[in-house]
Amino acid sequence: MKKLTLNQLSKPIILVAFFLILTILRPSSFLSASNLGNVLWSVSVYGIMVSGTIFVFLLGGIDLSIGSLCGLTAVTCVMTIRHFNYSTTGVLLGILLTLGVGLLAGLVHGVIITTFKVPAFLVTFATQIIFLGLSMIFTNNKILSCQNPPAFTMIGKNPVPIILMIIAAAISWFVLRKTATGRYVYAVGGNPQAAAISGISVTKITIMAYMISGFTTAIGGIVLASMTQQCMASTGSGYEQFVIMAGVIGGISLLGGEGTVPGAIFGAVIIGLLQNGLNLMSVPSTQHGLVRGIVIIAAVGFDALQRDPAFQGWLAKRKQARAKNA
């Protein structure tokens, strides 16, 4: 039996604290069934997306395009369904096509990054606006509604998104925790040179990670479109920030090699609660960026600070000084 350390307990404690704070601040509205449903609803999209993007994070990469890819895939799905006159076949084709778009986007990212050895953030920064542009072209800058058929709208109704999130997280957890491929992801993220000497194809693992990221983003896009029963070019915009935040809060190191799926899901829940709390306190969504930014700086900054040798040295010195005093 391993002892639980304060570090391991910190996540549940934070979670409970968040709950308590929100309950105290807004007792009636926060704990209402419909609000909790809303929380889960928004958490599920981040959760689905981060379940895939975690592969990219673990490699020390980044995917800034997931927000606009989420929009593009939502558009793909809705337009296909509309094209097939809201038929169930259309839904099926739409989903398949959308997942294909997600995988293709990931493939393109992975191939460009590995073949030309260019920084991931730059490539995905560029594809971010490409995807946005494509969505604008396809939608003609209009909102496309899609309230039929039930096969589509049910995807976004509780508890389907939550189930999807659980499935996505479970698969991701299984792959990362239980399979050789998962071990390779951690190895490549932790030390690509050593991984290559151990016979692991860094290129293959990298391309795979970006494809998985694209795939879960596509699922996120479908769910988001179904939840809102509409889509537009700006659907999902800014989601890359939520997902990065969820990861960082969940203990994923952006330098790669460190982080778990449960951690990421925890991060997604915290982001969902945070947003819900801000909404309940009537903070307009345009101002959420302030809180988001501060949380990112605090979480990443703390992580970076802990790795800073100067800071480590300072800690060690303080420890020594204390030992002397004692």
Binding site: A187, G190, Q193, A194, G199, G257
Partner: peptide, 20 residues
């Protein structure tokens, strides 16, 4: 240090890395 092992992983996982 740069090519031999994965510093963040345990002995078990480093040993297993080539042996799945």
């Amino acid at each position: 240090r740069n090519q031999g092992f994965i510093p963040l992983l345990s002995t078990v996982k480093n040993v297993a890395l080539t042996n799945y």
